[in-house]
Amino acid sequence: MKFGMMFKDVSGALFKKPFTENYPAEPTETPDRLRGSLVWDPDSCTGCGLCARDCPAMAIEIEVIDKKAKHYQMTYHIDRCTFCGQCVESCNQGSLVMEGGEWELASLSREPFTEVGERPPLVVEETE
């Protein structure tokens, strides 16, 4: 039996820099794989809606405005998103990316938390 087993740790720590980070005064380093808000690439999207179907938080809505013209609208509710990354996993086209997205998402109002993206309609050329 001894006393003060942690004494060395405690006294040693007096002469060290704090272990904690001084966030937000100093920006913190984030790993490459950190999942932030979803980035949608409208050009490769086929509007299949698998991401919306698999989303456990119902954060994604895909609306097909005109199938022929490949005109889709995507609504992303960041405030519902749990950043699980299943949509990225489900997307066969690789149109969704979460890694490296924006993660400092605190805000005082809910309004900025719904992103609406739209794929512009293709100009269907008249063949006749």
């Binding site: 179907r53 698999d54 989303c55 456990p56 699980c84 299943q86 489900s90």
Partner: peptide, 8 residues
């Protein structure tokens, strides 16, 4: 919920 959603 579906199996995929339940996982999370």
């Amino acid at each position: 919920r579906t199996y995929v959603q339940n996982l999370y």
